[in-house]
Simulated assay, not measured.
Amino acid sequence: MILIFVFGLFFALEGKQFKGIERLPDSYDMRKARPGVLGPIRNHERCNAYWAFAASTVFTARYNIKCHANITHSVQDLISCDLSDNACIRGNGKDTLDWIQKVGITDERCFIYTSWTGHVTKCIQMCHNGSNIVRHKYSNITYYNSPDDAMYSVMNEGPVVMNFPVDSTFEKYSGGVYAPKNAQFVEVREAALIGWGNENGQRYFIGQAHYGEKWGEGGYFRLSRNLSNDMDFYAGTPKCN
């Protein structure tokens, strides 16, 4: 693999793993750095497919950045068609990214979100508008070795999927820097990592959630970086077609 040195950073031409020489900035926010790239804030309502929302959000932004597009990808396509996960009950973000690499994901106009009721629609053979289904894929998947590697990727390639521990207070989050209060985590959730910051010495990640715009901080949340040892980060490189 050929490496290029630019402005204090080594970048791999194949692109997915790179190591910073200079430290990361104290703060970064994709909403300001790349306005219009992130898809809309969505609300899962009665379908707890956190894995699918995170995966579709990350793919949408990365595809739009790399392919100079303006598409929102279908969360319903993953919920209904991804055989490696369990629809509205539970899923695994890593399996989902593998599914997108092998099978792909279509756009929201083709397969709109219907599982807000908790009912899982069958996988479609034609788009809702009668056109043929076109699915976009990842060419490769990257599992980041450290939060810093994931954060460099957010700056250069787009958001990454992060999974993180939560307790029962997370769904009632209304602002501030979140950290589970209960040492016995209830479960692991997944969301799109879109930035980070520092508030009075308290470092945090910025995540895009899927509880609607009235939840949290306009649909987003800040997560304590002290949880990094209990987190995983992963994403892929979209094919443009």
Rank of each mutant, 00 (worst) to 15 (best):
I2R: 15
L3M: 10
I4N: 13
F10W: 13
L13H: 08
Q17H: 10
F18M: 09
G20M: 06
G20H: 02
I21K: 07
I21L: 15
E22V: 12
R31G: 03
K32L: 10
P35F: 05
V37M: 12
R42A: 10
W51F: 10
A54V: 10
F59L: 10
A61R: 03
N64F: 01
A69G: 11
N70T: 06
T72L: 02
S74C: 12
C81W: 02
S84Y: 12
D85Y: 03
K94L: 10
D98G: 10
I100L: 08
V103N: 08
V103T: 15
G104F: 01
R109S: 15
F111D: 06
Y113H: 03
Y113K: 04
W116F: 12
K122N: 11
C123H: 06
V134L: 12
R135L: 05
R135S: 11
K137Q: 11
K137R: 13
Y138D: 09
N140G: 13
D148P: 04
Y152L: 14
P159F: 04
V161S: 02
N163Y: 00
F164N: 05
F164K: 00
F164L: 04
S174T: 09
G176K: 03
V177T: 14
A179I: 08
A191R: 01
G197N: 02
F205I: 03
I206A: 00
Y211S: 01
E217G: 02
G218H: 09
N226H: 07
M231W: 07
Y234V: 06
Y234W: 14
